[in-house]
Design a binder for these strands. Structure first.
Lengths: 154, 154
DNA sequence: CTCAGTGCAAAGGATTTGCATGCCG
DNA sequence: CGGCATGCAAATCCTTTGCACTGAG
C-alpha cells in the first residue's frame, strides 16, 4: 500500500490536484465548494460533522454539503463515519492521509486520530485476512477504534 | 454458515438471572418484554436490527423496543452498533458473551462475528493502552471491525 | 451553450416522546 | 394500590430530494 511517499501528508496543492483528478475521472466536476470541503478536511486533524464543516465553509447550503460529501465519498476522496445516531463525521480517505485509528469519546462524541506500531498493524492485517478468508469475506478495509472518555471530559 | 466462534454462551436461565440482577441493581423493572429481547439476542449469533427483533418478539411495539433496548444498554446488558444511517443493530454486551469482532458487509449491511488469536488480542490491548495513555484517554472498550463484501453478496 | 451544481424548502425515515391505560412489585 | 412499562400516534432530527437558477467546461 505505498504508492505515496511514506508518512507525510500531501501539500495542499498536490492534494487538490489528486482530488480534481479523481472527480474528473468519475465524470464529476471540480467546483469551489468541493475543493473547499477537501481543504477544510485536510486542515482538520479529526473527522468533522456537517455542521462543523459548514461553520468553516462560508455560505455552503446543507443540501450541497451532503450532496458533495456523497460525491466525494463515491470517488474515494472522503470517508464517512457514523458513531451515534447523531451527525455523521467525515474525514479524508486513508490513501490521501495515512492509515490511522480513532479515539471516540463516549461522553462528548468527539473523535481524534492515533496510530499504532507498523509491526502490530501488519500482524493485525494478516490475522484479519485469515479470518476473512475462512468466511469467504472480501476485505475492503479494517477499522480499529477505541471508545472511552477523552481528557476534556474526564 | 456464520459459525459461532469458539467458546460457549451462558445457559439461558443463568443469563436471565444476570440480566434481572443488573436491571434491579439500576432500579429498573424486569418485564416480559425485556427478558424476551435478551433471549432473542442470546439466541442470535449476530447483531439484530429493531425490525428483526420485533419479528422475533410477538406483539412488541416499536417504541417499547427502542425504550427497552435503551434501558438494557444503560444497564450494560446490550450494546448498540451503528453501521450506516439505516437501522442500528443490537447485541448482548461483551461480558455476557465473549470478546469478538465484526465482519460488516458494505453491500447488504449484514454483520457477523469472528474472533482473533488471543496473543494478537493481547498485543493489541497493550498498544491501545499506550496510545490512549499518551493522550489522557480512558479506555472503555475497543472495536475492531472488518468492512468488505460477504460471501452472499460476492 | 449545455448540463451539472447550488440553494431553498419540503419530503423521508429512523428514533423519540406525550399521554392514557395495564401490570410489576 | 402506586408508579413504571406499554401502545399508539404525533413529534424530532438527520439526511435526502424536487425545482428553478447559476456556473463549470
Amino acid at each position: 500500500m505505498s504508492g505515496t511517499a511514506g508518512g507525510r501528508r500531501r501539500a495542499r496543492t498536490e492534494l487538490d490536484d489528486v482530488v480534481a483528478q479523481r472527480l474528473r475521472g468519475a465524470g464529476q466536476r471540480v467546483t469551489a465548494a468541493r475543493t473547499a470541503l477537501v481543504d477544510v478536511l485536510a486542515r482538520a486533524k479529526r473527522p468533522l460533522t456537517i455542521p462543523e464543516l459548514q461553520r468553516r465553509s462560508p455560505g455552503l447550503a446543507t443540501s450541497s454539503a451532503y450532496r458533495n460529501l456523497g460525491v466525494l465519498e463515491e470517488v474515494g476522496v472522503v470517508h464517512r463515519i457514523v458513531t451515534n445516531g447523531d451527525h455523521a463525521r467525515y474525514e479524508l480517505a486513508e490513501d490521501l492521509t495515512e492509515h490511522h485509528h480513532h479515539l471516540i469519546c463516549s461522553v462528548c462524541g468527539s473523535v481524534s486520530d492515533f496510530t499504532v506500531a507498523p509491526k502490530l498493524e501488519r500482524d493485525l492485517a494478516v490475522a484479519l485476512a485469515q479470518a476473512a478468508h475462512a468466511r469467504d469475506f472480501r476485505i475492503q478495509a479494517h477499522r480499529l477504534d477505541l471508545v472511552g472518555v477523552c481528557a476534556g471530559c474526564a
